[in-house]
């Protein structure tokens, strides 16, 4: 039987400092935290559903909405922005036929992301959490090939 919310919650003792880790884990496993799961998390930690949703919706690495199968995130913080990030974004838009920030595409989402601490190895691109370093305009196609 696959992992359920209850099983994941039981990995954490119901203390306040486990709220964020639990939400994070559930978001990771299920792709996002939906309303029903929010209720279960709230009950488990004896806090309000309001607090769980407030917290879950705040952080970048937690999703409260269903995501398309492939989320492409391009770092646009200083070092990467100076490097070629804009051109890389344009190339990705070209190859995937989507626009930056478009939320309606059924398969892809392309967004900018904040620095992930690999400034020496930029430009950096993440696809569903997998990190690609030293990306160039010419290496974009190869990077995206497996997802097309």
């Amino acid at each position: 039987m696959s992992l359920t919310v209850e099983k994941i919650l039981l990995e954490f003792s119901p203390r306040a400092e486990n709220i964020l880790p639990a939400i994070r884990q559930i978001s990771l496993v299920f792709g996002y935290v939906d309303e029903e799961k929010t209720g279960k998390i709230a009950d488990y930690f004896s806090v309000t559903k309001t607090q769980i949703y407030e917290t879950a919706s705040f952080y970048d690495n937690i999703n409260t909405e269903k995501q398309p199968p492939f989320v492409v995130r391009v770092c646009f913080s200083t070092h990467c922005a100076l490097s070629d990030a804009k051109k890389i974004i344009a190339e990705i838009e070209n190859i995937l036929h989507i626009k930056l920030g478009d939320v309606n595409h059924p398969k892809f989402k392309l967004e900018m992301m904040s620095c992930v601490g690999r400034c020496g190895e930029g430009p950096v691109v993440m696809v569903n959490g997998k990190v690609y370093e030293r990306v160039t305009v010419s290496s974009v196609y190869e990077m995206l090939e497996e997802y097309l």
Binding site: S77, T78, H79, S114, C115, G117, R118
Partner: peptide, 10 residues
């Protein structure tokens, strides 16, 4: 360590 351009602690 989320300051852009910073990865010393890492």
């Amino acid at each position: 360590e989320s300051e852009p351009g910073t990865y010393k602690d890492r």
